[in-house]
């Protein structure tokens, strides 16, 4: 698995580009097609490419956290997004709250987005764990 020089050099460019697309897909997920699952998968695709080009160890370095820890973080973030609902009396767990800060344009911010971020991280963690393990396997 010694990928060619071209792949290795193009690896960083082609890692960040899917990540950017995935964040874009994640953020607008609430109104247009997209969301946590798809975003996570696209980001994981980028990680897969980087793992193939530069090897799984480098891919893990990029992720800072190990993929499996990323999964844990994702689930934690998703669960945490339900906390505000827990604090307010008799609202069932995981009901989401929305604020509309107006910085020039009104930005709908809500705990639903936090939950989606949790989903995003979990899917990213799971898929990249899978890929790194597979690529290591293939070597």
């Amino acid at each position: 698995m010694n990928p060619s020089l071209i792949l290795r050099t193009s690896a960083p460019l082609l890692l960040w580009m899917p990540l950017v697309v995935s964040l874009y897909v994640l953020v607008r997920g609430h109104n247009d097609p997209g969301g946590g699952f798809i975003g996570g998968l696209i980001a994981a695709g980028g990680v897969l490419f980087y793992a193939i080009a530069r090897g799984p160890a480098a891919a893990r370095a990029v992720l800072r956290l190990s993929p499996v820890a990323l999964c844990g973080l994702g689930v934690l973030v998703a669960t945490a997004s339900g906390i505000p609902a827990l604090l307010t009396p008799e609202t069932p767990y995981l009901t989401h709250f929305w604020w509309f800060p107006t910085l020039g344009v009104t930005l709908p911010l809500g705990t639903a987005l936090v939950f989606d971020l949790g989903v995003y991280l979990t899917v990213l963690g799971m898929a990249s764990a899978l890929f790194c393990a597979l690529v290591e396997e293939a070597q």
Partner: peptide
């Protein structure tokens, strides 16, 4: 159209993965 863009990104990644396989 956004779906098309998404497929483009992912199609390319698949091509690379297939190549290495």
């Amino acid at each position: 159209l956004d779906v098309a863009l998404g497929i483009a990104v992912f199609g390319f990644l698949a091509a690379i993965a297939f190549a290495c396989l």
